[in-house]
């Protein structure tokens, strides 16, 4: 052993060690590179294959609502309606899910004792384990028909608000944005709740105890310490939820009824979102030019979700910097 110290083996051992470390290090770096590159490739490939179709497009891509890709020589596709339906359904989902998620997160972190909160939190996580196609199935066959009276009531009494005016599909069966938005709200509830729960839990105990020592009720303590502390995390979580809602495919595809006329900016419209439009046409992806039209729609969706997620991260990062 002792001759090793001055002998020839230590250098040999250390080069072997260095080689092992080098190989392992480059393996891990390479894997990271795979992830970074694949994001770039997604954007690049979608762009490359969308451009020829966009060039062959005979109408305006952004402001037109027409979608006919059957005749390759005369492509005419625009995303206006897809955008309207996607944004309307996602925003409705967000408007429903945000307050409920906040309530659940507060309930789990500051009302229930930790031991009981655990199984309760598990119940909410169960919602996240339900696959989207099952949500779609339930939304289309069970929830939609049950919501029909409510939708009819809103439509009859609030139709002076454009969002509740007559849509382009019949109210019966509930195949409209109203149903889709509610189902999407249920689907994004777990993620918003999970993120909010995490930040609400991290509220400094000093602040909480300080507020309580000053005589605040539990609600006043929450309002003055937990909510200001957790606000950025809550908003970031909601943005993540919004990203999910924007990209949700199958549930929306099954629920929404296709419409013959263009969108009327109402919750009682049918039609397609970006994602459901692409999925609905998937079996007919044979002609590169017409496929390119759907890829262009997918590119818009990608850019959209990229922006929303980057924003969520930025908000969360800013909140973290402020807290520390």
């Amino acid at each position: 052993m002792t001759d090793n110290v001055t002998g020839s083996s230590p250098p040999a051992r250390s080069t072997g060690r260095r080689r092992g470390d080098g190989i392992f290090r480059s393996m891990t770096t390479g894997s990271s590179l795979v992830i970074v590159v694949s994001i770039g490739l997604i954007g690049l490939f979608l762009l490359i294959q969308a451009v020829p179709s966009l060039q062959a497009n005979t109408i305006n891509f952004f402001t037109s609502a027409e979608w006919s890709t059957g005749d390759v020589g005369n492509l005419a596709f625009g995303i206006r309606d897809l955008l309207v339906v996607t944004v309307l359904s996602s925003l409705l989902a967000l408007a429903i899910a945000m307050p409920i998620a906040m309530g659940i997160a507060l309930f789990l972190t500051h009302y229930l004792p930790p031991k009981i909160a655990q199984p309760f939190a598990y119940v909410i996580d169960l919602l996240a384990a339900v696959p989207s196609i099952v949500f779609g199935l339930w939304g289309a066959k069970v929830l939609g028909p049950s919501l029909e009276p409510i939708a009819t009531f809103l439509n009859e009494n609030l139709s002076w608000i454009p969002l509740f005016s007559d849509g382009n599909v019949s109210l019966s069966g509930g195949g409209n944005i109203f149903t889709a938005g509610i189902v999407l709200a249920i689907m994004i509830l777990p993620i918003i709740t999970a993120v909010s729960r995490e930040v609400f839990r991290q509220t400094p105990a000093m602040q909480i105890e300080g507020a309580l020592a000053l005589g605040a009720t539990r609600w006043e303590m929450i309002r003055t310490t937990v909510l200001p502390f957790g606000r950025s995390g809550y908003i970031a979580g909601s943005m993540l939820g919004l990203g999910r809602a924007l990209g949700e495919t199958v549930a929306v595809l099954i629920i929404l009824r296709s419409a013959s006329s263009s969108s009327t900016f109402s919750f009682f419209d049918g039609g397609y979102t970006f994602a459901s439009k692409i999925a609905s046409a998937a079996p007919e992806f044979s002609e590169p030019l017409s496929t390119g039209a759907y890829i262009a729609a997918g590119l818009v969706l990608f850019v959209f979700t990229f922006a929303v997620n980057a924003l969520a991260r930025y908000i969360a990062g800013r909140g973290k910097a402020k807290a520390s």
């Binding site: 770096t29 990271s32 992830i35 970074v36 694949s38 994001i39 490739l41 997604i42 490939f45 979608l46 490359i48 294959q49 993540l240 990203g243 999910r244 924007l246 990209g247 949700e248 495919t249 970006f274 994602a275 692409i278 999925a279 998937a282 992806f285 590169p288 496929t291 759907y294 890829i295 997918g298 969706l301 990608f302 979700t305 990229f306 929303v308 997620n309 980057a310 969520a312 991260r313």
Partner: peptide, 30 residues
């Protein structure tokens, strides 16, 4: 590079499944 990777992992977790599918279609089939 670590920060870029973390950012990209976040973005990847937000990529809708239909976009991932379209990307593989564009790569694999087209």
């Amino acid at each position: 590079f670590a920060r870029i990777t973390t950012f990209m992992v976040d973005i990847l977790s937000g990529v809708p499944s239909i976009v991932a599918a379209l990307f593989v279609f564009a790569l694999w089939v087209t």
